[in-house]
Nucleic acid binder design. Structure first.
Lengths: 249, 249
DNA sequence: CGCGCCGTTGACCATGATCAAGGGGAGTGG
DNA sequence: CCACTCCCCTTGATCATGGTCAACGGCGCG
């Protein structure tokens, strides 16, 4: 129990190194400029003070200034719906980027909020654009990142359009697990910082359904869930559950 | 009736001009090169022979070569699911681009099929990359297009996650109407080339549900649907139906 | 003219939303 | 240190939506 307290926040206590970050390529590029123009690089990329739980990194309508790379902690992005409820767009973990979908918009298109304390690096876009013409490779990387995002969003549409509640939750957990694995974070037993309500919104279900499905998957022996601590005890079975997959052919 | 036969295919008979096309910006850029290097431009952008109904423009796994701009006709993009069914990803109309989501992938990530006879322009990417370094503005436009695509995909996730069947169909039709309107095509009464099954797959519903909802919206006087000819008789009411909208704030 | 595909409609059923009640854990104040 | 409170989660009961199965009609094509 005391142990579980210590273990809390695999995403929060563990910090990913820069070589595990989606900005890595950009950083390499910037590295080339470090000797020539250290001030410019300094202006473009800087580490922010820790973000507290519940704090907003940016909000819908704020003028777009920067993309954030998450060093530690986890975040959710969401919009407000006209009925007053919030719609969760995504969850974001160490090594991943925030605000990418607002690149080339005047304003951020959603809100980004910390689900637990975390650290981020800020990639200032105003100043990056100054380098723009000298950084076609940077644009290239941006294109790569955006294009990955599109494929991920389309995958999410598939989940929302075709899968049943248990399949959605399984897909969600497997997705988390894979992303953690890719960054060298614990991917079998981990703490999820988001509430059931957040998961429900993200998966297009009611929060009660999320709760029930956690129970059911646990009964089937596929996972163990006690509050925010999740253990995937049978990953192959969970993957099997997500039958409606796209054929990569 | 003979009339209706003539009217068939608003998207097929009407051809959008180049200034109504998403490639317009690119074309302008290319224009600058026309005098200096006409051959290069020739290689990059060329018009293809008419695509017949049912014909595939590209298929999952084909090596990515080009993005297509639709001059006339309509297309669907889809993937094959592991259960053997097809999943429609989107519908595409004159002035819009096809294959954008595979930019920077080695292969196309989905299939693109003509829903009726159509014409396309082909933007050869291999050759464009030769201009790449001299065309940061082209990359800039690509970024803009990709970033729009992301916002559209996220909007679609919202539809699939939160809306009921009638709202989904209304959202679908309003979306079509708006896109037609933006290109100067008829947007109140128009022919839809896709089957009910295609719409169902796209909207994450059963085809019977699509049929029922068409009937129901017709009973409510919001539209008239006889087969593939659709008339939106009460657009404000259809828009009202899509209550679950994101607040742009 | 007949076949087949597409769309429509009806009946029934499964999934998940909604409403309602209750439990547990963390933080706060006495 | 304990009790209280609030929030989050769980569980149960009921109901609505939409999926599934089945039959049928119409249009186009061979």
């Amino acid at each position: 129990m005391a142990n579980s307290k210590l273990n809390k926040c695999n995403t929060c206590k563990t910090e990913v190194g820069c070589n595990n970050c989606n900005l890595f390529g950009v950083l390499n590029l910037l590295g080339n400029f470090l000797h020539e123009e250290p001030d410019t690089v300094e202006r473009i990329l800087r580490r922010r003070d820790p973000i507290e739980k519940g704090e907003a990194l940016f909000q819908t309508g704020d003028t777009f200034k920067a993309v954030y790379a998450i060093k530690s902690g986890s975040f959710k992005t969401y919009s407000w719906l006209s009925d007053g409820k919030e719609q969760v767009i995504g969850f974001h973990f160490p090594g991943e980027l925030l605000g990418l979908d607002s690149v080339r918009s005047p304003n951020y298109s959603c809100n980004a909020q910390a689900l637990e304390q975390g650290n981020v690096c800020q990639l200032q876009f105003e100043d990056l654009d100054l380098l723009g013409n000298r950084l076609p490779q940077f644009q290239e990387q941006l294109i790569q990142l955006l294009s990955n995002q599109i494929l991920m969003d389309q995958k999410q549409s598939l989940v929302l359009g075709r899968q049943r509640a248990d399949e959605r939750l399984a897909a969600f957990l497997i997705d988390l697990s894979n992303r953690f694995k890719g960054r060298g974070l614990p991917f079998i037993e981990f703490h999820i910082a988001m509430s059931r309500q957040d998961i429900a919104s993200y998966l297009g279900l009611a929060l009660e359904s999320i709760s029930r499905q956690f129970t059911r998957l646990q009964e089937q022996g596929l996972l163990k869930a006690s509050g925010k601590l999740v253990t995937l005890t049978d990953i192959p079975a969970l993957e099997e559950l997500i039958r409606t997959e796209v054929k990569t052919h």
